[in-house]
Design a protein around this nucleic acid. Structure first.
Lengths: 224, 224
DNA sequence: AACTTTATCAACACCGTGTCGAGTCAGTCA
DNA sequence: TGACTGACTCGACACGGTGTTGATAAAGTT
């Protein structure tokens, strides 16, 4: 059902912060994984706000106090899960960035947006939980901010390069454009995942955001 | 037995739903206002999730049970406040739409975005609370969806008109473009109000989103 | 004056969080 | 082997928030 990521090695601790277990290396590893899997499974069914610590404990076959042996709070569990999503997305970004540097920037841009969209769509439930958590948890906010900052920096560089090459017209500061574009993606994708109304159809999202990115970056406004 | 109130003509009830008071016309009006004012005041200080029913009751000079005489829940209070914000924003939209229909669409568009931005910036705290509430309250979600739908419909009409006039190039379906643009505005403005990082500076927001809107609507992508 | 409606709140039932302390159990190692 | 230790478990509790109940008072209405 939930075949987990293959990177169980090469990483002593997901984050340096006080997330995760207190200190151990014994059989409780299974329990920790069980909690994380339960969280992911329940998030497919209902929003984070409707999942209690008891639900997670029950799902992992332990009592509520025992849950606290493994994680300091419900939020910490979700934060750990988000860490992994973010790491996966970062890989996608690096991949796409490489492609962007060597080939045609326009095709590369489409590929990059596609990979990014794919990374989050694959973990739709977690993405929605992240957005929810961000509203009330400073740590989640900081983590997300870091992610956004990374993309903005990359996109800014791309826009500036294309302007320098003379293929993109000047305009508002590249970084400002990048912020708006990246935030647009986030919002549009969230709406689609959450099936808001109005929202874009899943199979239309990429066409639309790619067109807006291209027009924004490459298309100057002809004076009427 | 329905004593009609003359002061707020043309509006019997903010919403048809069971929001607000149960039924009265006496001095308790002051209390109701006091609760709403307390809520707005506290929202300037801290997020909705950190405000309790007791805080609202204390702020209005009543006990917690008495609060429930006036509102069925904390959410209902905020929903009432959001109703008003939304109504004000709708007025702005109508205003801007009129301007858009008679004058130059490009200048009109800028004016419309400016008015809209202003309407929400004037009620920054409430706007942020609305976003928070939307995450966990279906009624708030429905209300916001209605608002978004209204804007999307208007923008769709504008894009289609401009394409029909031949001044805007064809491209992805007008409605899809409209959805993405409206959602971009929402996200960018939210980030600015919340002082996220990264986010646009308050005095730069309009320049940036107007440029993106114009390039998206009027600027086709020249083939490289 | 009897009656109704509006308004108020102490006390309660309930739920979710997080902590404490008293355990069990599986391995050391003396 | 038996005392010791550290990993692990959970019943019972304290706390803080929500929403309800029922008793009561105060202000109209007839």
């Amino acid at each position: 059902m939930v075949e987990d990521v293959p990177k169980t090695a090469a990483k002593p601790t997901p984050t340096a912060g006080g997330r995760g277990r207190r200190a151990t290396r014994a059989s409780g590893d299974d329990r920790e994984r069980a909690i994380l899997e339960t969280a992911e499974r329940l998030l497919e069914e209902r929003p984070l706000s409707e999942i209690s610590v008891d639900d997670l404990a029950k799902g992992a076959g332990i009592s509520r106090p025992t849950f606290y042996f493994y994680f300091p709070s419900k939020d910490a569990v979700v934060l750990t899960i988000i860490d992994r999503l973010v790491a996966a997305a970062a890989d996608s970004r690096e991949e796409a960035l490489k492609m962007l540097a060597e080939g045609d920037p326009r095709a590369g841009l489409r590929q990059a947006l596609e990979d990014l969209y794919g990374a989050f769509r694959a973990r739709r439930a977690v993405t929605l939980a992240a957005a929810e958590l961000r509203m009330r948890n400073p740590e989640a906010r900081a983590l997300w901010a870091e992610v956004m900052e990374g993309w903005v920096a990359d996109v800014t560089a791309v826009i500036e390069a294309e302007r320098a090459r003379g293929v993109a017209p000047p305009g508002e500061p590249a970084r400002d454009m990048a912020i708006a574009l990246v935030q647009m993606n986030e919002r549009v994708q969230y709406a689609t995942f959450a099936e808001e109304s109005p929202s874009l159809e899943p199979n239309r999202v990429l066409n639309v955001i790619v067109e807006i990115w291209l027009r924004t970056i490459y298309g100057g406004v002809e004076p009427s």
